[in-house]
Simulated assay, not measured.
Amino acid sequence: MQRASHHSRVNATVVLNRRSVLATVAFTLAAVTGLVGCGSDTQVDYETAGGSGDSLVVYVGAGDDREILEYAVENLLPASVKIELVDASEDSNGKVAAGDGDLSFYQHIPAFEADLGTHSYDNLSIVSKVNVVPYGLYSSTWKDVKDTESWVNVGLVADEVTGQSLPHGSQVVLPATSTGFARGLYLLQSAGLVKLDRPFGGTSAVDLTITQANVLDSLRHLTLLGLGYDDYLQSLYENYDAVVLNPDDAASIGLTPAEDALAIEPGPGNPYAHVLVAPSRLAGDQRVLELARALESPELAQFLETKFRGANIPVAAAESE
């Protein structure tokens, strides 16, 4: 089953009319109460980029990021908010820092932090953690990761298998890249299959590049194999007990995370969350608060679930459940 296609490639600017702001408040969303509710009467006009007025100019990435932001703007904001969506480029953070745009939404946390480190932007911060493109664990043989007494690949004795849960002794393939292997390890820990020397969620270079040396205990006695996928993905999926895949790799062999994954990376606390970034000059801007609230809402979470079928999952909305 192929992953749902992305229909949103709008090059025009999305503009929505907004009411005047009621008050200036801090970016901390927990402190915000009584925000204006979302209505179905939101009017959308498509104009060219660079419009004037009270519009917030948001640099947005292509593909899923744009589709997610467009959905929030068109469906979840008060009827009075004006938002311009402009295609992001590598220097979009710099433009926001310099005042040539208001917000950016095109990167995950490690990419943003690396950009901060390179350019020393001291006036930018994350105001919303929105979505994650999660790695998943897939198997052509086993159906879940529930506790089991089954064993395979022992060698000296015959396999002892009852049920369809991933057995002890399974051979699990992870991406050979440092990032992919590390995310695979954290995924296995979140599924209760291994125990690492650190929790999930750190964004330091050390946290993001852990190896087998960081495995304290393989609770399912797994053999972990870091392999290059190249053109052999289907063969790896068919010939090993399980394989860790990102959504694009899964889709390439007909797999959908929501239906086929034995386990998926969690959204809450995920260091690879895609983020909305704002400058300090917009601290307390009600429009930014409203946009962040929309991006972290249960309605946005439901949109992700319906549209992407596990290939893009919510962060903050899941945390509030």
Rank of each mutant, 00 (worst) to 15 (best):
L245P: 04
Q234C: 01
I210H: 10
G192M: 03
S120K: 14
V96Q: 09
V73A: 07
N123C: 03
L22H: 04
S252Y: 10
G94T: 09
G228N: 11
L124S: 03
H119N: 13
I109P: 02
T209Y: 00
D54R: 15
A182E: 11
S165R: 02
L124G: 03
A263G: 01
D217T: 13
A292E: 02
L69W: 11
E321G: 06
L166A: 04
K129L: 12
V244T: 08
E113R: 14
D241S: 11
V25F: 13
A263K: 11
G117R: 14
V315R: 08
V15A: 11
E238F: 08
T42K: 00
A205V: 04
G50H: 08
D65H: 13
L188I: 07
V96P: 05
K195W: 00
E265C: 01
K129M: 12
A301T: 05
Y229W: 10
G267H: 02
S190I: 09
N123E: 07
G202V: 09
T209V: 10
I313L: 02
S5R: 11
S139M: 10
L222A: 03
D115M: 05
Y272I: 05
F200A: 06
P199R: 06
D197Y: 04
E70Y: 07
V215N: 07
Y59I: 05
D249M: 12
E84H: 08
L124C: 05
R183K: 12
V157K: 13
A26L: 09
G61D: 04
A213Q: 13
Q286I: 01
S120I: 14
P78E: 05
L304N: 03
E238P: 14
K143A: 10
E296K: 08
N312H: 08
L137N: 12
G269Y: 14
V215A: 05
R281M: 06
K129F: 03
L124P: 07
T48M: 14
L22T: 02
G310C: 07
A283Y: 07
Y106L: 01
A205T: 13
Q107A: 15
V44L: 00
Y237D: 05
L77C: 09
Q302F: 08
N270C: 10
